[in-house]
């Protein structure tokens, strides 16, 4: 073997819309990695592919629905979760996953996110957190660290960000984990755990956004951010939710706490049916 063998198909091509490749995400962006973990998770889930449904909102991560060869819905900005809830409640046997970004799920979609977590609805959420609104060119968002530069924060973001695991733990999600796109094996395993966990599961995935966030916060490219992940990520002990430790500012050389934070069994949301217990 002296040269890589040129191939036409990737082993996961049946699960993605190969006829739409290459996708639109920038070189070094991490969304494709997380999507690959999701595709692999679907294959390993033991559920037939036709029972998996993916719903995305608007933004770079919102394009995942369009690239998955599933029943997929690309909805309006921030409204993926209630839309997904509608599918789940109308057809409970489906495994409904919402795959979207920090801007979509936490900024405009924040109200639906915390209520869905409070109700503990049986929808799986994969939230790409690249610390900015990437699709529209790099504005700051609700997870952008204070002081970071963005196109709408040329003097540095003067707002304090959300800390997603902490927020979702308070809201009530049954399963909360944070991984990065470098931890692809753990992410896929976490997605599988989410599939088998009844109730609201939330997986935050840190992903490089070289164009939107990295460039203006001196992280030159995806490679450099993945290196940051390798150097700084520290596995959290489950259930250990010290808020300060959970904060992330990629510009500081400070540990990034990852892993599974919450895995509990609050009763999942079921609409009341007469004649049922």
């Amino acid at each position: 073997m002296t040269e890589p063998i040129l191939a036409e198909h990737h082993p996961l091509d049946d699960l993605i819309r190969a006829d739409r490749m290459p996708h639109i995400w920038c070189p070094g962006c991490g969304i494709g990695i997380a999507m690959r973990c999701y595709a692999q998770g679907i294959l390993d889930s033991g559920l037939p592919v036709k029972d998996h449904v993916v719903v995305s909102g608007i933004g770079c991560s919102g394009r995942v629905a369009g690239y998955m060869n599933l029943d997929s819905y690309h909805t309006t900005h921030g409204r993926a979760i209630p839309f997904a809830m509608g599918i789940k409640l109308a057809k409970p046997e489906l495994m409904v996953t919402v795959f979207s970004g920090d801007g979509d799920l936490v900024a405009i979609g924040g109200n639906h996110l915390i209520h869905a977590a409070r109700r503990n609805i049986d929808v799986k959420v994969i939230c790409i957190n690249n610390f900015n609104f990437g699709m529209t060119g790099g504005q700051f968002g609700p997870t952008t660290p204070r002081g970071a530069i963005a196109t709408t924060a040329p003097y540095g973001n003067f707002e304090l960000p959300f800390n997603l695991p902490y927020l979702l733990a308070a809201a009530g999600a049954n399963y909360i984990a944070r991984w990065t796109t470098l931890h692809a094996r753990q992410l896929k395993k976490s997605i599988l755990e989410a599939f088998s966990k009844p109730g609201f599961t939330f997986i935050e995935v840190l992903a490089p956004c070289p164009i939107g966030f990295g460039k203006s916060n001196n992280i030159n490219d995806g490679l450099e951010e993945m290196e940051l992940y390798r150097d700084r990520c520290v596995m959290a002990r489950q259930g250990e939710m010290n808020p300060e430790e959970l904060e992330i500012d990629l510009r500081e050389d400070k540990p990034i706490l990852i892993g599974k934070f919450i895995d509990r069994d609050r009763p999942p949301f079921h609409p009341f049916m007469k004649g049922q217990s």
Partner: peptide, 26 residues
Amino acid sequence: TIVSGKENSCIHCEFCALICSEFAIF
């Protein structure tokens, strides 16, 4: 491409495929 001399070094750990965002290598 493959580094010359490393033709038989691949240990099939699949990490290149795991972190390829483009579904381009496996």
